[in-house]
Nucleic acid binder design. Structure first.
Lengths: 346, 346
DNA sequence: CTGAAAGCGCTAACAG
DNA sequence: CTGTTAGCGCTTTCAG
C-alpha cells in the first residue's frame, strides 16, 4: 500500500497548510517528458511540438496542476507581484483609486499585495519593508510624506515606485496625483468670487491627513491675499471622513459664529453631513450659508442640491499610476487635473 | 576596480527590476558567521549568543538587508500570504469587510494578495487559480457561488478557505456571513407589520449580485405567505449599487404605479437615491411612501430622516473570517446576526 | 551555540 | 524540438 515518496497526492490532505501538492516534475513524469519542456509549454515560451504540448497539457489537467509562482519567481528573479501601500480602505477615495490600479494590473497579469497604514507613518514604514520582502516588481504608495527610513527603502529597493494622489512635494521616483494646494486655492477663489467673505472651516484630523492640510493651506493663502482669514474652524474628532463629523462640526461652528456666510469642508462626507444639518434646521442653502466640499463623490451631486466641490480623477489616477509603474520610463510627475463642480450649495 | 561577483551592490541599480540586492549570505559574510546563524537571528528562532546576535543585526542594518520572503517561503513551505477574492472594491461593504480582515491579518504578520472578480464567475475562477499559485496559507473568498472548477480548486488546494458574506448555501470549507434570505424575510415582515401592503421593489442587477437576489427571494416569500406580491419593480441598469440608480428607479416606478405605499430596495445606496427623489418631489416620507434599504450605511442613518434598513456586521465579519482562517479548526458555518434598524422612513 | 549541506519547485542556459 | 544541469535565496536537519 505504500506510495513512491514522490507521487502526486491523490487528494491533498485538507487542513494541513503544507500539504503536498503536484509539482512540475509530477506533470513531467506523467507526460513522459523533461521538466523544462513542461515549463516551456505552461509558460507558452519556446517551441514545443504540438504532440508533446497536448500530452503535457493533458497531464497537467489530469493532475490539477497549479504552478508554484513562488518557485518561479525565485528562479526567474522576476515577480508578477506589485506592492500597494494605502492609508485606509474605508474612505471612498482609495477604493476608486484601487479599482483603477487593479484594472491595469490584472490585464498585465500582476497581483497586488496590499498594506494599509492607517495614516501612521511608522506603520507605513513597516509595511513597505514587509511588502518589499515579497520582491514585487514595483511599488505603489499613497502620498509623498514618509519616514526617513521609508524613503531610503523606496529609493534603494531596486524597483520602480509611484507615489499617488498628491504632487505637492518631492517624490522618490514617479509621482501621479493632483495638487491639493491648488485645489484649496481654487476653492477659495471660487467662494470669494461669489462674494462670500465670512468663511468657516470644518475638517477632520489634518495632522494625519496631510493632503487635507495642503488644501486648507492653499485655501488660507488665497484668503490672506485678499486680507481675509478663516473666521473659525472645527475639527471633527473622527478619524478620516465622516458624515456625522460634518453634522456635528457645523452645529458646533454655527453655535459659536452665527454670522458665517460660507463653510469650507475638508471633504464631501463632512460637507454632506453639514448639508443635512442645515436641511434639518431650516438653514437655507446657499442663501443663508454656502457649503463647499472636496472629492466630487457621486452622492454629493445627487443630493437635492448638488454640492459645490472639487472632483479628482481617482480611477484615472489609479490607472495612470499602474501604467506608469509597469511601463517604466524616466522619473516624472504627472499632474492629473481636478475639476471644480459649481453645484447648488454656493 | 573590479568587485568580487558576490559583493552587495553599493546602491542597487535603479530602474532595473532585477537589480542585485543584498542577500543573507552577504550579511553572513559581513558578520563573519554562517548563513544559518543569520537566519536564526533574523527569525528569532533558535538560540544564538548575544554577541553574535548583535554582530549580525549590525551587519544586516549596515547592508540595509531586506529578507527575501519568496525564497523563505519556498524553503520553508509555509507562506505568510493570504489570498482574498472579492467581487468589487467600489462598494462600501467590501472595504469594511476588508478592513476587518486586514486588522487581523496584519497583527499576525500576514500579507493579503487580492483579486477582484467584478461579479464575474469566470474571472473569479481565474483569480482563484492565479492567487493559489502564490501558495497562500489560506484563502478568503466572497460568496458561496462559484464555477464547478473553482469549487474543485478551493476544495483540492490543500489550504483552508473561508467563504464570506453569505451563509445561504453549501460552503466548501468554512463559512462566515449573514443570511440574506432571512434579511429579506425580516424586511418584509417589518413592512407588513407596519401595515404596508402595496409594495414595489427597486434593485440592481440581481443576476450578478446573488445576495441581493436572495434577499428579494426572502422578501417575496413572506409576502406570498400573506397572499401578497410585489406590485412592480424596477432594476437599475447600473452595475453594482448607485444612488443615481435609486433616484431614477423610483421615478420610473412611481410613474407607472402611483398607488404604492412602500418600496423595498436592494441596498441603501439605491434607497438614499430614492429618498432624495421623494424629498425633491415633495413626496412625504413615510406618510405617502415608505422606504426600506439594506446595509446600514453610516450615511443612511444621518439623512434628515434615518433610513429603515438592515445592518450587517461587516467589520466583525471580516475579523471573524480572518481569525477562523488563521486558527484552522473544523469546517463550520458562522451565522453573524444582522440588525434591523427601524429608522424614520417606514 | 554554530556551520555545512541538502533541498524547496521552478527557470534558464546549454547541449544534443 | 527536448533533456540535463545549475542555480534563485532561504530554511532546516544534522553534525560538531
Amino acid at each position: 500500500m505504500s506510495r513512491a515518496p514522490d507521487d502526486p497526492p491523490a487528494p491533498p490532505a485538507k487542513g494541513d497548510l503544507h500539504a503536498m501538492v503536484t509539482t512540475l516534475s509530477h506533470v513531467a513524469r506523467r507526460a513522459g517528458v523533461g521538466q523544462s519542456t513542461v515549463s516551456r509549454v505552461l509558460r507558452n515560451h519556446g517551441s514545443v511540438s504540438q504532440a508533446t504540448r497536448e500530452k503535457i497539457l493533458k497531464a497537467a489537467a489530469d493532475l490539477h496542476y497549479v504552478p508554484n509562482r513562488i518557485a518561479g519567481t525565485l528562479a526567474s528573479m522576476t515577480s508578477k507581484l506589485v506592492g500597494i501601500v494605502i492609508p485606509s480602505v474605508g474612505n471612498t477615495v482609495v477604493p476608486e483609486v484601487l479599482a483603477g490600479v487593479n484594472a491595469v494590473l490584472e490585464d498585465a497579469g500582476f497581483q497586488p499585495v496590499i498594506g494599509v497604514s492607517n495614516y501612521d507613518p511608522q506603520r507605513e514604514e513597516m509595511l513597505i519593508e514587509s511588502i518589499l520582502s515579497w520582491r514585487p516588481s514595483g511599488l505603489l504608495v499613497a502620498g509623498l510624506e514618509h519616514t526617513e527610513r521609508a524613503r531610503g527603502m523606496l529609493k534603494g529597493c531596486g524597483v520602480r515606485v509611484v507615489e499617488m494622489l498628491d504632487i505637492d512635494g518631492a517624490g522618490v521616483d514617479m509621482v501621479v496625483g493632483t495638487s491639493h494646494h491648488a485645489a484649496g486655492r481654487a476653492s477659495a477663489q471660487y467662494l470669494l468670487g461669489r462674494g462670500y467673505r465670512r468663511i468657516g472651516y470644518v475638517g477632520h484630523d489634518i495632522r494625519s491627513d496631510l493632503r487635507a492640510g495642503k488644501r486648507l493651506e492653499g485655501f488660507r493663502q488665497v484668503m490672506a491675499e485678499q486680507g481675509l482669514v478663516i473666521l473659525d474652524h472645527e475639527f471633527s474628532p473622527h478619524r478620516g471622513s465622516s458624515v456625522e463629523g460634518g453634522k456635528i462640526g457645523v452645529a458646533a461652528l454655527l453655535d459659536r459664529r452665527k454670522d458665517l456666510d460660507a463653510i469650507y469642508f475638508s471633504n464631501d462626507d463632512l460637507a454632506i453631513g453639514g448639508y443635512f444639518h442645515c436641511v434639518e434646521n431650516g438653514i437655507s442653502i446657499p442663501g443663508q450659508l454656502a457649503l463647499f466640499g472636496y472629492n466630487g463623490l457621486d452622492i454629493a451631486r445627487l443630493t437635492p442640491q448638488p454640492l459645490s466641490t472639487i472632483r479628482s480623477p481617482r480611477i484615472a489616477m489609479g490607472k495612470s499610476a499602474a501604467e506608469l509603474l509597469l511601463a517604466g520610463g524616466p522619473a516624472q510627475v504627472v499632474d492629473m487635473a481636478f475639476e471644480l463642480i459649481p453645484g447648488a450649495t454656493s
